[in-house]
């Protein structure tokens, strides 16, 4: 397999040097680079490998998943046009609108929405809203995460609090899963996490999420979309959208969607993300 890939690269390289308009050929032949948010996928290398192989097969083109520890790093890669496509959280998507165009939105539970969950340790009693966590230690997943950072801070502002001084101490775990872990292990008194990650984990590791308790659920936000670099050739973007949206129509694709805890992919619509855009505006982003 590796040997064949290597020969493939070699052929591409020869083509680039021998043809005057080699750029087009080269862009068609080089692997498609897709940035992946550090969602619960980070800990599911097997699933990611399956999905990558599926996409490669359908696109008839090698696909590379690019993983970074934080959303910020993925955003930097987009700015540098070093990614062809990315699965982004909705907050970075709003911030990166100048660089990317939305391609497809995954449907979670048949709908293109998710929420922010405020969680505390299951052993902690007497916390009924974020207001009860004043002066406590709070864990955020990522400063560019909507559900974990933007949404709870927005909620605090709505309640008339200064999110920078409301908690005694805050820290970033750089993934939703780890934010859940910080609460489960009592390092943090509370955290806000992605409902999709929490529910998906509850499906595969119920004893882990059972160590946390959901205090409150936020309003619905548009589900993190698949976006493409504005400079990506239209045909490639269409092909990718076609493959993603077609996943539900074959067994292999359905099996992967099931493991991802997703229903299918739909056409991304700007109105899904209007509420997030409002919050970003209010936050002064």
């Amino acid at each position: 397999m590796h040997r064949r890939l290597f020969l493939h690269h070699l052929g591409a390289g020869l083509a680039m040097t021998s043809l005057p308009n080699g750029h087009v050929l080269a862009s068609e032949d080089r692997p498609l680079r897709i940035g992946m948010s550090p969602v619960f996928l980070h800990d599911s290398h097997g699933l990611m490998g399956e999905w990558k192989a599926y996409l490669s097969k359908r696109l008839k083109r090698q696909v590379i998943f690019v993983l970074r520890d934080s959303y910020g790093e993925t955003m930097d890669l987009i700015k540098q046009h070093r990614l062809d496509a990315a699965w982004l959280c909705d907050y970075p998507y709003i911030l990166m609108k100048a660089y990317v165009i939305p391609l497809a939105t995954p449907l979670y539970g048949g709908r293109p929405y998710y929420r922010s969950y405020l969680i505390v340790s299951s052993q902690r009693k007497g916390v009924h809203s974020i207001a009860d966590l004043e002066g406590k230690v709070f864990a955020y997943a990522d400063p560019y995460s909507n559900t974990s950072y933007l949404a709870p801070r927005h909620a605090l502002k709505q309640l008339g609090n200064n999110p920078d001084t409301f908690f005694r101490k805050t820290f970033f775990t750089w993934s939703h899963r780890k934010a859940i872990e910080a609460v489960a292990k009592h390092l943090a008194d509370g955290a806000a996490v992605d409902s999709y990650v929490w529910e998906s984990l509850a499906r595969v590791e119920p004893e882990f999420t059972a160590r946390t308790r959901i205090v409150s659920r936020s309003e619905e936000f548009g589900f993190p979309p698949f976006v493409v670099d504005r400079e990506l050739p239209g045909g490639t973007a269409r092909d990718l959208r076609h493959v993603l949206m077609g996943m539900e129509r074959d067994d292999e694709g359905r099996a992967i969607l099931d493991k991802l805890n997703l229903t299918s992919f739909s056409q991304a619509r700007p109105e899904f993300y209007e509420s997030v855009e409002d919050m970003v505006r209010q936050a002064g982003g």
Binding site: A139, K169, F171, F172, T173, W174, K178, A182, K185, L187
Partner: peptide, 8 residues
């Protein structure tokens, strides 16, 4: 860097 989680 006040990185509590990494320390943890």
């Amino acid at each position: 860097h006040d990185d509590v989680w990494r320390g943890f």
